[in-house]
Structure formats: structure tokens, C-alpha cells
Simulated assay, not measured.
Amino acid sequence: MQLIGQGWIYRVGNSLIRVENAFAWLGWAQERLVVNDEPVRSAGAWYGLSRDFKEDWLTPTGEGELLVRLTSRLNGISCDAWLDGVEIEPEALRVARWRGDRNSWAPAEAWAPAGKHAWIVRKPSAA
């Protein structure tokens, strides 16, 4: 199947966090949370509209929680991330297209900077 992917890259301390979403027009959607190139959470479903990932996270003041929320909207897909309730802004936005089975992901070199016509819903400040 043809998959259309979106990726949000966040930097938290010394860690690089990638949140990736992909969908196919026939109704399949999949998501994953990757920390320092290691997948730590993944999910997929037919006709999914949102996904939350929660991950324990060590902060400068102790144990905290990283919360990532992906939401399908009428005009695209949004991703919001919080560390201990404080919103984190993405460092980069990426897109990819590939052919593959459910739960397959594009190779790293297939991901390119997101343009204005990506499926990523941008906040007004990130326009």
C-alpha cells in the first residue's frame, strides 16, 4: 500500500525524539515514538483518529513524564508534546512517501523537510 508519513523531531536535553505518523487512503494509520534512534512505542489501527504516547522521563528535577498526542484533523495531522506539563516545540518537521505493508516505515534517507503542503497541521506561530 502507499503510505504517507509525517514526522516531528523534538530535542529534550541530550535526547532526540521523533514522533512519526503514517496513513494510507484506505483507512490504515500507524504511529511510533523513537528516542535516540530506538523505537520505544508503536501502534497502528484502521480508522484511528488520535493516539497518545506516555513515557517516563528523567528531568533535571527528578522523574517526569513525556506525553505525545497525535490528532487527525480535517486539514491534516497535528502533534503536541509535553514534558511534565510544559509544552515542547518541534525542532523540525519531516515528510515521506513509500510503498509498504502495515507497520513498515520509510528508510531514514526518504524523510525530507516538510513543505507548506504537507499533512502536518502547523500552529500559527510555526507558519
Rank of each mutant, 00 (worst) to 15 (best):
L83A: 03
P107C: 01
D80C: 10
L58T: 10
S72T: 12
D37E: 15
A22G: 15
A114W: 03
F23Y: 14
P60W: 05
R18H: 13
Q30V: 00
G100K: 07
N75D: 15
W25Q: 12
N21S: 15
I77H: 05
V95Y: 01
R99I: 14
H117F: 12
C79N: 03
L67D: 06
W57R: 06
R11L: 09
R41I: 07
G64H: 05
L74M: 15
R99D: 14
S42R: 13
R32G: 02
N21V: 13
L66G: 01
Y10A: 00
H117C: 14
I17T: 01
G27E: 06
Q6R: 03
Q2G: 01
A106I: 02
A106M: 04
P90M: 03
L70Q: 08
R11M: 06
V34Q: 04
A127I: 12
D56W: 11
L83K: 02
G62T: 03
L83W: 02
V35H: 02
G62Y: 06
K54H: 14
R122W: 08
G115C: 05
D80G: 12
D80R: 12
W111D: 02
V68Y: 03
N36S: 02
I4Q: 09
A24H: 14
V19R: 03
G13T: 02
N14S: 11
S42G: 10
R122K: 13
W8R: 00
G48C: 10
I120E: 03
I17Y: 01
S50E: 10
D56R: 14
R99E: 14
L66M: 09
G13P: 04
Q30P: 01
A126S: 13
Q30H: 04
I9Q: 10
W57G: 03
R69N: 10
I9Y: 05
L16T: 15
W8L: 00
S104I: 07
A127P: 05
E87L: 09
I120M: 05
L66Y: 06
E91M: 13
T71D: 14
K123S: 11
